[in-house]
C-alpha cells in the first residue's frame, strides 16, 4: 500500500463524523468497525501470517472486557483497570499459546476452540464472580485528560487514535524481521529451523501480538458497551472475527479492516429487517469459504490488475495450506 493512499484513507476516516449522514448512529457504527478491525487485524497475525486458525480468540477479547468491567465495577480507577485488562489478557494469551502451540493445523484449531469454551463456560456459569448471563454492567466511560467520551464523536476520536496506533504497530510487526519470519514458519517451518530460527518461539510471539490486539479491542468494546456479557466470549464471536479475516482477505493488512466493515455493516442492515443475524452470518461464512476462500481484498486486487483473469497460482489464503 502506498503511504499516500493510507494517509488519504485515514484522513477520510478521521473526517467521518463531519460528513456521516446518520449522525451519532453512524459515528457509533464507525467506532465499532474500528474496534472489530483491530481485533481482526490481531487475529490475522495468526490466521494469515502464521497460518494458524484460532477459534478461541473471543476468549481473549472477552477476557479483557470482563477484567476491565469487573475492576471498574469494583471501583478501580479506569487507567489501572485498562492496564490490568491488557496485562492479564497478555498472560492468558501466553497460557493459550503454550497449550495451543503443542499442535498446528487442526490440533491448534481444536485446542484454541476448547480454551475459548473454557473461558466462556467460566463467565457463564461462575455466576458469583461474573454475573452469569446478566454479565457485568458499568455506566462510566473513562475520561482521558478530562475529556468525556460519553458522546459519539469524542468516543469515535479516542477509538480512532487507538485504531491508528494499533494499525501502525501491526503494520510494523508484519514488515519486521520477526513478522517475515512468522510468515516463514507458515510456509516452511522445517527450513526455518534449519536456518537457525526458533519456530516455536516465533509462533508464540505471534500469538502474543494477536492476543495484545484482542485485549486492546476487548477493552474498547467494553468502553463502547459499558457492559461485559458471556456473548463476547462465545464461539459465535470467535467465528465472527475469523469470518472478518477470511472475508476481507487473510495475510493482507486491509483485508481484516474491510472484513470488519463488511460484517458489521451487514449485521446492521440485516438486523433492522430480520432478527436472524446468525443465519446470515453462517450463510456468508459458508459462501465465502466455498466461493471466495482468498477473500475480498486479494480477489478484487486480482481483478483490478487483470480484469477477467482467472485465479493464478493458489495463494496462501486462510487455509490454503496446512503447516507441516
Amino acid at each position: 500500500m502506498k503511504p499516500l493512499a493510507i494517509a488519504a484513507g485515514l484522513a477520510a476516516l478521521a473526517a467521518l463524523p463531519l460528513w456521516m449522514p446518520g449522525g451519532s448512529y453512524d459515528v457509533n457504527i464507525a467506532s465499532q468497525v474500528m474496534i472489530w478491525a483491530v481485533f481482526a487485524l490481531g487475529l490475522n497475525v495468526l490466521v494469515g501470517y502464521a497460518g494458524l486458525v484460532s477459534l478461541g480468540q473471543a476468549g481473549l477479547f472477552g477476557f479483557a472486557c470482563y477484567v476491565a468491567a469487573w475492576l471498574v465495577a469494583a471501583g478501580t480507577a479506569q487507567w489501572i483497570a485498562a492496564i490490568a485488562a491488557i496485562g492479564f489478557t497478555l498472560v492468558l494469551s501466553a497460557v493459550f499459546a503454550v497449550l495451543a502451540l503443542r499442535g498446528t493445523g487442526i490440533s491448534f484449531l481444536m485446542i484454541t476452540l476448547t480454551l475459548g469454551e473454557i473461558v466462556w463456560g467460566i463467565a457463564q456459569r461462575w455466576v458469583s464472580l461474573t454475573g452469569g448471563d446478566n454479565g457485568i454492567s458499568v455506566s462510566t466511560r473513562p475520561a482521558p485528560f478530562g475529556i468525556s467520551l460519553d458522546t459519539a464523536t469524542p468516543f469515535f476520536y479516542a477509538t480512532f487514535a487507538m485504531f491508528v496506533v494499533m494499525l501502525g504497530l501491526v503494520w510494523r510487526f508484519v514488515h519486521s524481521p520477526l513478522g517475515v519470519a512468522l510468515r516463514g514458519t507458515r510456509d516452511q517451518p522445517r527450513r526455518m529451523g534449519a536456518l537457525g530460527y526458533n519456530v516455536w518461539l516465533i509462533r508464540f510471539l505471534g500469538f502474543l501480538v494477536s492476543g495484545f490486539a484482542a485485549a486492546v479491542a476487548g477493552l474498547f468494546f467494553f468502553y463502547y458497551n459499558e457492559f461485559a456479557s458471556p456473548y463476547v466470549l462465545s464461539l459465535t464471536t470467535s467465528a465472527e472475527v475469523v469470518l472478518m479475516v477470511i472475508a476481507g482477505g487473510a495475510a493482507t493488512l486491509l483485508g481484516p479492516i474491510v472484513g470488519a466493515a463488511l460484517v458489521l455493516g451487514m449485521q446492521d442492515v440485516v438486523s433492522s429487517y430480520v432478527a436472524h443475524w446468525n443465519l446470515m452470518l453462517g450463510a456468508i461464512f459458508v459462501a465465502i469459504i466455498l466461493f471466495m476462500p482468498e477473500g475480498l481484498v486479494p480477489g478484487l486486487a486480482r481483478l483490478a490488475r487483470r480484469p477477467g483473469a482467472a485465479p493464478a497460482a493458489p495463494r496462501p489464503g486462510a487455509f490454503g495450506r496446512t503447516p507441516s
Partner: peptide, 16 residues
C-alpha cells in the same frame, strides 16, 4: 483443506 472444512461446519452450525 481441513481448516476450511472445519470452518464450514462452524458456519453450518450457526445456520442450524
Amino acid at each position: 483443506k481441513p481448516q476450511a472444512q472445519v470452518l464450514l461446519t462452524l458456519g453450518m452450525a450457526l445456520i442450524v
